[in-house]
């Protein structure tokens, strides 16, 4: 599974990281540090939950 994040639109809610800090690493200010995530096998459900938790709706599942 691959995830795309519109990093520039991140508002620093950090809800994705509240679901999984490992999948959604934050920078020092608490904003998303990456714009792509290769989701390790077995973490797909967590990735989906993290994407859904974003109030800015900027986390997209690109490939199932």
């Amino acid at each position: 599974m691959k995830i795309r994040i519109e990093k520039a639109s991140c508002a620093g809610n950090a809800r994705c990281a509240a679901v999984s800090e490992e999948l959604f690493p934050l920078n020092e200010d608490g904003y998303i540090a990456v714009d792509k995530v290769d989701v390790p096998e077995g973490k797909e459900q967590l990735a989906r939950r993290g994407a859904r938790a974003c109030p800015e709706r900027i986390i997209f599942i690109e490939e199932e």
Partner: peptide, 20 residues
Amino acid sequence: RENKTHIAFNAGVHRCLGSH
């Protein structure tokens, strides 16, 4: 509830700084 993605702290650039 599956979707609890509220905007109580607003959205966009003015998102509440103290939300955490």
